[in-house]
Write a protein that binds this DNA or RNA. Structure first.
Lengths: 328, 328
DNA sequence: ATGAAAGCGCTAACAT
DNA sequence: ATGTTAGCGCTTTCAT
C-alpha cells in the first residue's frame, strides 16, 4: 500500500541506505554512482514514493513546524497576520500549527501545551500568558524551547512588539491640525496595554485634552459604546480606537445616533486592515509593520532551533505611523 | 534532556511496556496493578514526561491532523470558516494544517502535495482543482485517501456545498417587494459558479430583469466596478453581490459617486460575515451555514479515516436564506 | 561506491 | 500482572 525506502531498494537491488542517500541529496553530488542514482530516482517516481513524515520527524528529532498562538484568527488584523505568517513560514520550509484562544490566559497556556504535544519546534504567541512563575516558562528555559512573544511584554523571552508613540504622535498632531480640542481613547485590554500610554504621552506633548473610553471586545458592546459616546454631551471631538475593526463598529454607533464622521467626530483606528480603505468613510489609521513582525519572529525561531538556544532578552521594537484618509 | 518511556520505566524499575500501558489508558481499567499505576503516573509527572508526537505518529500510522486548503484565510468569510474549523477540529482531538492558495489551481495542487508530505490523515479543500485526470485524484482513489471537497463540484469525491436557490429566491422576492424593477449580479469566478445560476433562476421565477456585472477579486478593482456601475445610466436599481466583502467595497464605490444605498441602489451580499451588521448601512445578505459545513466535513474525514475507505459520491447540500438589514 | 547495523521513542502481539 | 520482542520508516555512523 504505502511505498517505503525498502520497497525502492529491493525493487532495484540495493539497500535502503543507498536509496536514502540518493533521495536526500537534492541535486548535490553524492558518493553514489550516477547509474544507481538515476535508477533510484526513476524507481522512486515509478512507485510514487513519498517519504514518511513521521519517520523523518522521529529520526531527525524535529518536525519543521512552528506553533502560532493568537486570540482569534477571525479578527481582520490577526487573519491578515496569520495569512502572512503562513506564507512566510512556507517560504522557509516550515509549517505553522495554529491555535486560537479567545484571549483567555488559561486557554493560551493550554494551546502552548497542545502545540508542544504536537511536536512543534518552536512557538510564537500573541500573549503574555507565560509569566516567569508558570510551568511553561520553566519548560522554555530548561529545554531552551524556541519561543517568541508577539505584541506583548513577557519577562526575558524574545519579544517583538511595536512602538506606538510615533503613530500616536502623528495622529494627535493631525487631529490638532484639524482643529480638534480634545481626544478620547476607545479600547479594551489587554490590546491597549502598549497603545494607551503612548496615546496619553502624545496628548500631553501636543497639549490636547485626553480622555479614556473603555469598551469591551464584543462587537455589539462596541456598537453600544459608540452610541453612548454619541449621546454624551461631554464627548471629545475626536477618538483614537484600539483597532480598525473596533473603530469601524464604533463609527457605525456614531452614525446610528445621527453623528457625522469626521464633521462631528473624527475617528482614527489602528492596524490598517485591508478593508479600512473601503469603509464609509475610509478610515484614517495607524499603520503597523506586520511583515517585519512575522519575518523577524520566524527568523528568530529558526535561528533558535538551529542553535538549540534561546535568544534571551532579545527585543525587536517596530515603528508605527499614521495614514490619513477621510475619517478625520 | 528529553524524557522517554524508558526513562520513567527504569526510574521505577519496570519496562516501558508497562509504562506505555498505564499512560495510554486514560482513566480506564488496566491489567496493571494499582500500585504500579500510581507510581508510574507519579513518575511521569515528576519527570515531566511528554510523549513524542513523531514516535506515536509513526507507530500508530496516523497524525490525527487534517489539511485545510482554501484560497485565502484573510478574507473575512474564510477567516471565520477557518476559525470555526480550528475549533471544531480541536474538539475532535485533531489538528488542522492550513494552506492558502490564492485561488490558483497550481498552488492548490501543490498545497495538496505539501500537506500529504506532512502526513495529514485527510484533507478538506475549497477548490475544484482535483479533476479526475489529475495525479491527486488517482492518489486519492488508489490510497482511499480521505478527502472532502468544500463549496465546489469535483467528480465523485465527497462534497459539501450549498443550495443558493432558496437564498436567491428570497433575495429577489424581497427586492421585488421593495419595488425594484431589475437586478444585477456582481461577482467573479469561480466563486460565482454555484450562485449565479440560482440568481438567474430566481429572477426568472420572480419575473425581474436580470443582468450580470462581472468583476475581479481585487478590492481596488471591485471599488472601480462600483464606481463604473454608479456612472452607468442603464444600471439596475439593485445588485446581489458574490460576497459580503465585495458588496461592502462595491457599496463604497457607489457612495463615492454620490449614490445612496438603498435609495438609489439596493445592495445584497452573501456570506453574512460578522462585520456585515456593522457596515454603513448594515448589509442585507444571504446566510450560509458555515457550522454544518465544517462539522460535516470533519465528521466525514474522521469516518473515512477510521474505515480507511472513501465516501465516494457522497454529497451534502446545505440550504441558504436571506437576512434583511438596511442596505435594501 | 555500497552495505550493515544501530537507534529515534513508541505500540502491540505474544510470552511468562 | 508484567516482560520480551519485533517492528513503524527513516537517518547515520561505521564498515567493506
Amino acid at each position: 500500500m504505502v511505498v517505503t525506502l525498502d520497497d525502492i531498494a529491493s525493487h532495484i537491488g540495493v539497500t535502503k541506505t543507498t536509496v536514502s542517500l540518493v533521495l536526500n541529496s537534492r541535486g548535490g553530488k553524492t558518493r553514489i554512482s550516477q547509474t544507481t542514482t538515476d535508477r533510484i530516482r526513476q524507481a522512486a517516481k515509478d512507485l510514487d514514493y513519498r517519504p514518511s513524515f513521521s519517520a523523518q520527524a522521529l529520526t531527525k528529532g524535529k518536525t519543521s513546524s512552528f506553533g502560532f498562538i493568537c486570540g482569534a484568527i477571525d479578527s481582520p488584523f490577526l487573519a491578515e497576520m496569520t495569512a502572512l505568517a503562513l506564507r512566510e513560514a512556507k517560504q522557509r520550509n516550515h509549517h505553522l500549527l495554529l491555535a486560537a484562544t479567545q484571549w483567555e490566559t488559561k486557554s493560551e497556556l493550554e494551546a502552548f501545551e497542545l502545540l508542544l504535544a504536537r511536536g512543534v519546534d518552536g512557538i510564537m504567541m500573541f500573549s503574555s500568558a507565560i509569566t516567569p512563575d508558570s510551568d511553561q516558562y520553566r519548560y522554555i528555559h530548561s529545554h531552551q524551547f524556541p519561543t517568541v512573544i508577539m505584541d506583548q511584554i513577557s519577562g526575558d523571552l524574545p519579544m517583538i512588539f511595536e512602538d506606538f508613540l510615533p503613530g500616536m504622535m502623528q495622529a494627535v498632531e493631525h487631529l490638532k491640525d484639524r482643529g480638534c480640542r480634545s481626544v478620547g481613547y476607545v479600547g479594551h485590554w489587554p490590546a491597549s496595554r502598549l497603545k494607551f500610554p503612548c496615546f496619553e504621552q502624545a496628548c500631553k506633548h501636543h497639549n490636547l485634552k485626553a480622555s479614556s473610553w473603555p469598551c469591551e471586545v464584543d462587537p455589539d458592546l462596541i456598537l453600544e459604546s459608540g452610541r453612548a459616546f454619541a449621546r454624551n454631551p461631554d464627548r471629545p471631538d475626536a477618538v483614537i480606537v484600539v483597532s480598525d475593526m473596533a473603530a469601524i463598529i464604533f463609527m457605525q454607533g456614531l452614525t446610528e445616533e445621527g453623528l457625522r464622521v469626521p464633521e462631528d467626530v473624527a475617528v482614527i483606528g489602528s492596524d490598517d486592515i485591508r478593508m479600512a480603505r473601503f469603509m464609509n468613510p475610509p478610515l484614517t489609521t495607524i499603520i503597523r509593520d506586520r511583515t517585519t513582525m512575522v519575518t523577524q519572529a520566524l527568523d528568530w525561531l529558526i535561528q533558535m532551533t538551529d542553535q538549540k538556544k534561546l535568544l534571551l532578552g532579545k527585543e525587536c521594537c517596530l515603528p508605527t505611523k499614521l495614514v490619513i484618509r477621510k475619517s478625520t
